[in-house]
Amino acid sequence: MRRKIPLIITFIIGVVLVTGYFVTRGPFNTLYESFSDYFAIITVFAFILGGGSLLKIHLKRVSNRSTDWPYSVVTLAGFLVTLVIGLFKVGNPDGMGGEILAAGSWLRFLFDGVYNPLSATMFSLLAFFVASASYRAFRARTKEATILLSAAMVILLGRTPVGAWLTAWMPEILGFLELPNLANWIMAWPNTAGQRAIMIGIALGVIATSLRIILGIERNYLGRRE
């Protein structure tokens, strides 16, 4: 029964929501929004599970003095300090009634002074990793790899003013060969064609997976059997 009931609920909700997409009247036409709201509410409560897991694992590591336990202290401190400041609006100039990110509040300081720079730092790592991955991966090993490599070079140069400068000498009749134009052509045609093909494949995959779930053929995600 523990497995059958979720399957029946999945089937009914799936069919009703799909039906709701084609129906103009209530309650069908607003079901999607209602279920989105329910999901948001469940997610908020589920955070207690996540927060609990975080606390449990890191407290255990600290108490057992496991390998690299000082990192767990940093995690716990960051988590608890932000949670308390955010939840009780500690240091908020307007008190508990104030806006959560009010100017001058402690949470705003944490957001601007800690969260912002740390997030931007992690994101900026991409530049370094793109370079190392490009150096390793873009090698003309096969015909296909050579085409990929050539397209990458055109896009890299064509997306900067250097591309325009390098090919500015070209006569007007060969204007389409200027790097920025070539880069735009690659983005607008081959890229779009490829993206669309992948998107069609994904859409079909989503439909097939959804059908498997709604019909109860796919049930691995439900976990425990009776």
Partner: peptide, 28 residues
């Protein structure tokens, strides 16, 4: 893309799951 959605069916080797993969190809 679509291979991610096909993966579970592919690994399970369960006929109806594989049938849905074939249906996906028909859609394509």
């Amino acid at each position: 893309g679509e291979e991610l959605f096909a993966a579970s069916a592919y690994l399970s080797k369960e006929p109806r799951m594989l049938g849905s993969l074939k249906g996906q190809d028909a859609g394509k």
